[in-house]
Write a protein that binds this DNA or RNA. Structure first.
Lengths: 249, 249
DNA sequence: GAGTGGTCTAGACCACTGC
DNA sequence: CAGTGGTCTAGACCACTCT
């Protein structure tokens, strides 16, 4: 009647991969593949440390990272358990392109505008650049299965990034930024809805007045620079936002 | 030319509050009140530990919690800096009621349905209960400034919670669940849009065909139980989802 | 080379849970 | 009461960044 699971775990001290990370990856894989079933107890930290030849703080660090991901729950006096919840995917700062690709949708992008323009006061405020200065302006139509799905307008400060139209059509904006050495840190998003105007209806192959899903986003890198402002519209019959939230404890 | 900030920090060893938590709260308050300005360096961990009479791991634990919140950035060989970004509010598992209240909107709730019904197959699957079993069904209209803003239908397993109509009108569902000793853990959300049907248009004081913002949510507690399934519609001219995402590193 | 954070150890005591 | 996680210490060595 002991629900504690005995897993085969091992660490490689010759590897440059941190020991706690090796352990957390093995535990995550065991959960993923069902070798650690929901509700099962992990075995206490001291015994686990002894079995692996690690110190307790190292084992705790591994476990803590999975608690932060929402995969495990710790209870004082009880133990550490695998969470039951059906879906494990956490909320990430992801791009539409990545979302579509991982869903197997073969996204395509049509770059309609790729230019440098003087900013409007609103965009200047959002990007944190001086009014009247120049910024990149990119407008893209995203298609899935050949059908228009999203119309995206983005503004970026000059000098951060080469915005090559061919690259923009081959991948997503976030991927280009990461490839340019920008470390993304956080983004502020607003998701809403409105009726389509005549122009935006036509862009997405919709009727005027049709409901559109909208998203505005400002993205920051880890130095605090604003690296991107975007305002996107989606056809709600073809796209919705889906994510998992964790409670901050 | 030293950008390192010298803060007045202290810890109380007699307090039951953990030392790392005392420190992280003081640092967070210092950032909040501008005593630690964006971009400023925090001073190295060893010196900080010595100054406070703490060990380095304890200081690291305090700093790490703020890094996880997105307030600080660590760079090896450089130091720990306060992030620049304008908005600091992180994404939380929040309730509409709390959102409105903190925005000063004086939310009101009208409970239209509060009953127990046999579940449909779809709801049974979402809630993880047996088909044909009974569940709570609650329908609420949320108003702000006396105007309808959201129409919310929620299903809850029996036995978790007393669903008193008066309490439901006085506060939010999440708050009632927490008060009942349920520890919320995570939620899976889908946000989309669609045109209003005749019935839902009338509920929200809209025209048929008007764009609606929609949200479906399944909420889990820390034992893995599904504690709630909800499907909500919002008037997009009166509500939108706003949140900050952090990159998972 | 000097200084920073990243990782790791081998202990310790406490608070809470369940029997 | 025994067993669990929560917190804390005082060191150590390494990898990386900047000058």
């Amino acid at each position: 009647m002991d629900p504690t699971v005995r897993l085969e775990l091992s660490v490689d001290r010759g590897s440059p991969v941190p020991l706690y990370f090796q352990l957390s990856q093995q535990l995550e894989a065991a959960i993923e593949h069902g070798r650690l079933t929901p509700g099962s107890l992990l075995g206490n930290e001291i015994e686990l440390a002894g079995r692996l030849g690690l110190s307790r703080p190292t084992v705790r660090q591994a476990i803590q990272s999975l608690v932060d991901k929402g995969l495990l729950v710790r209870r004082r006096g009880v133990g550490t358990q695998v969470v039951h919840s059906q879906v494990k995917r956490p909320l990430e700062l992801s791009s539409l392109y990545d979302d579509l690709e991982s869903a197997g949708h073969r996204p395509a992008t049509r770059v309609l505008v790729n230019t440098v323009v003087p900013v409007s006061p609103e965009i200047a405020a959002a990007l944190g650049v001086a009014e009247g200065s120049d910024v990149h302006r990119v407008e893209r139509l995203r298609l899935a299965h050949g059908e228009p799905m999203a119309y995206m307008t983005n503004y970026l400060p000059l000098g951060l990034l080469d915005l090559d139209t061919r690259q923009l059509e081959a991948t997503g904006l976030y991927r280009l930024m990461r490839a340019a050495g920008i470390t993304l840190h956080s983004a502020r998003q607003t998701i809403g809805a409105r009726a389509a105007g005549a122009t935006e209806a036509e862009r997405l192959g919709e009727e005027r007045g049709a409901p559109l899903l909208t998203m505005q986003r400002v993205t920051f890198d880890d130095t605090g620079r604003t690296v991107e402002f975007g305002t996107h519209t989606y056809r709600p019959d073809r796209y919705s936002f889906e994510f998992q939230l964790l409670v901050r404890s």
